[in-house]
Design a protein around this nucleic acid. Structure first.
Lengths: 335, 335
DNA sequence: TGATTAAATCGAACCGGTTCGATCAAACTG
DNA sequence: CAGTTTGATCGAACCGGTTCGATTTAATCA
């Protein structure tokens, strides 16, 4: 591999001039610029990104940290960010914490060690120690999906309260009263907000929520399945189930199918967040989806704005909250 | 951030001794080792991975390059690799080429620039220039999924010919003769092998393949949908459709549903590779699945073996081919 | 006990860039 | 035309580690 010194020697200028010419051509005379360009081409010089990062104290890499890259929600956002970053000569490193807080922190630390230019982070951790850690980082960070109280950073997400409310209202309109709710982890903002949307709407409608109809699905497949089963074996069953996310809702659908309940004839089902191949799942689930493309776009632009305008570090963090969209399916029947 | 020089100063030894103590404690006396340990703890020293990589010419990162991290097939493998790597103090950088050859190459180049310790690569590119590029890299590489002629590297994958043959035989056993096949890109080994498995089995059974029943789905959703539509609008329709991968098969299912065909009553369907939530898709598709956990485990072990035994670079590349598994569903009916 | 060898430690060069103050010639000011 | 700017270039220090040959210290042997 050719180094900058090879170029300097061939162009008969100093190393510092080559470096300057490459990073700020305007400050070098036309003549030497030409010489250097030729030399670069002749030896096939490509700057070592590692050495650059070490010297500059910053790399051109962006860290992307989520709990599950396989989730199409995160996948769409990742793609948007990647495209935008690539167009601005940045490179996205994807890491997956599997939803584990310790691992998430380890990955963030790793990325920071790599002197990443910025971080797009869907936080799952919540203890004070972690918050302080994130807050103390001197790197542009855009948080998304989970709004965490205590993290003073840009945030991009959806109106989760509204998402829960929309589906609840829909079920109420169809005449449902015995509506069950499968929640997510109580430390997750999306989970609590969606649940609040549910309870608020029920209260507004003057319908009491049966405490047995609220079960914890942890946003995971196994917990969601178990929670759904608990709902389904009750003597007085709900007429509709509202899943706080795609995973728990589909786990519920599976449980229903296995027990021989038909959807929507026996029990209606609705969920928040889309899933791959939802169009071929029978019945098509009525859902509220987030505008992942828009979210990804905002995250990307905001993050790169912060990265390329370091002086604007004083710019106060801002929240971007998008309105989710209702997508009717045929999993909810009128009763 | 504390540097190694801070440690050296505090421990009253030279920088080189600190470095040695950290990388090879056995070669340092007990006494100084203690002093250094204390100093490290006192100043909170953590080695800068960038500086280490630059000096060593190698980092402790592993590059993972696939066409679609959202695909659960790759997701499972990624998880296995990640777990194993983490246990061996390596860190996985995930990159997604979106199936684009140019981007794939750019990502590999980027990872090489980062002096990654090794690469797990599901290659999609195929031009000679790219092959030479891969072949010329002086880094441990384990290829998987796609066996590419011309890449002399370890390879981990499944018996794709058998996968195609298994499903074809199953359909033949059920009495089907008018079997359609939705292929993948002809430059992909998995696609051609699965197709060969189909045609060979058909030939062995003495059943002629109707050329109109072989359509190209490109392994993508849009092309798969279009291909399926082409099959379904023919006056003489197939009685069964075999999708060369999950994407094209489910696209076919969607097309069937939209045109009002029932599966399996009107047309049977089978596919290669699982998909998330296949258990709630109606009907449950009969499929042949790869043992993703085993594949991931082999990839991980092989790659880390190569990384930690650099002297064994002479060890010739080896192929690991696993047998896929038949998973019956209810999407294929006897006729 | 002096010579030989092994173990522990050190100094300096190096990895491949960036950055900033110094230098010097050319251009501008009054 | 002396004095000051301005622009181009350079040298050296630096980022934060690693590595290897040299040197010092300790242990072994005759």
């Amino acid at each position: 591999m050719a180094t900058i010194r090879d170029v300097a020697k061939l162009a008969d200028v100093s190393v510092s001039t080559v470096s300057l010419a490459l990073s700020n051509p305007a400050r070098v005379s036309q003549k030497t610029l030409e010489k250097i360009r030729h030399a670069v081409a002749a030896v096939g010089f490509v700057a070592d990104p590692l050495a650059q990062s070490l010297a500059r104290g910053r790399s051109r890499m962006i860290g992307f940290v989520v709990g599950n890259v396989g989730n199409p929600f995160f996948g769409d956002i990742r793609r948007e960010l990647e495209n935008y970053a690539l167009d601005h000569s940045h490179f996205v490193l994807v890491t997956d914490s599997s939803g584990k807080t310790v691992r998430e922190r380890a990955m963030v630390e790793h990325l920071i060690g790599l002197k990443t230019a910025g971080l797009a982070l869907a936080p799952s951790g919540h203890d004070q120690d972690y918050l302080d850690f994130i807050g103390g980082l001197n790197v542009p960070i855009v948080c998304f999906d989970q709004k965490v109280a205590g993290i003073e950073r840009d945030f991009v997400g959806s109106d989760n309260h509204l998402a829960g409310a929309m589906l609840t209202e829909h079920l109420l309109q169809l005449g449902h009263r015995r509506i069950a709710f499968i929640t997510g982890p109580s430390h997750m903002h999306t989970a609590t907000e969606r649940y609040r949307g549910f309870t608020d709407t029920m209260a507004n409608a003057g319908v009491e929520v049966n405490p047995n109809f609220v079960v914890d699905g942890q946003f995971t497949r196994t917990a969601g399945y178990e929670a759904a089963m608990r709902l389904l074996i009750q003597p007085e069953r709900p007429t509709a189930i509202l899943g706080a996310n795609n995973t728990v809702a589909l786990s519920a659908l599976q449980a229903m199918q296995e027990l021989g309940f038909r959807c929507p004839e026996d029990i209606s089902l609705a969920m928040i967040d889309n899933v791959q191949w939802s169009s071929v799942i029978t019945p098509r689930i009525t859902m509220v989806v987030q505008d992942t493309l828009a979210l990804g776009g905002i995250i990307a632009r905001r993050l790169l704005h912060r990265i390329t305008n370091p002086q604007g570090a004083v710019e106060p963090p801002q929240d971007f909250v998008l309105t989710p969209k209702f997508v009717p399916g045929n999993s909810c029947r009128r009763i």
